[in-house]
Amino acid sequence: MSEWDGIEGVAGWRDKLAQLLDEAKRAVKNQDRDARFGVAERLNEFIAMSRPQTPEIQRLDDLAAGSAVALMQQTIDEQLAALTARSAELAKLTKELNSQADTAAASAESIRLTRVREVVSTLTRSVEALNEFRAALDAHDPATLGASVEDLLGRIQDLRNAIELGAAPAARSARAVPRSARSPRTSKPAPRRRTKPASR
């Protein structure tokens, strides 16, 4: 036997709805999640089961539908507010965890000797630039010398960046790109030639 059996007439359905609305109020007051959903489902059943479809019964159905929707809307609003209230703390925790991830990634890089390798490679490139500079000095060609000085300065700056912990990776990676492949925007106004002068 269901709870809808034996209900007769408008008065019977009105009493049933009054009982459901009382339960809905209690569920809201007690912040009882399961009770709220339970009453909302029963209000839906009330709408489907109440009969005959007289204007009075339709008014009761409208009231039941409005109550079910309001009950669920309140749940949605409350839970959205709860999410909003926790967002700031979660964002802070996310930042903290990202920082831990960065530290862990840096540890892995350190174990891989990545920075040591970078510094040695940059140092090698600086020495190469220094050798070119020496060759340019020997050539007595002002244009070649100027380009070579600029190249040398760039390499020394790279070395400084590589050694310092706050090195700018973008600057280093830009230098790693073959010069021919660079766009005009990234190229220096005075191109640094790495080829040795024709006459020595």
Partner: peptide, 29 residues
């Protein structure tokens, strides 16, 4: 919270469906 929002929206959808077929359901009953 997300599940409560999801369930509540699902119940609201059900309310709309019940209301849409209210006269027909009453006739069947």
């Amino acid at each position: 919270s997300a599940q409560d929002i999801f369930d509540a929206a699902n119940v609201q959808a059900k309310t709309s469906l019940v209301k849409k077929y209210n006269a027909e359901s009453a006739y069947l009953e």
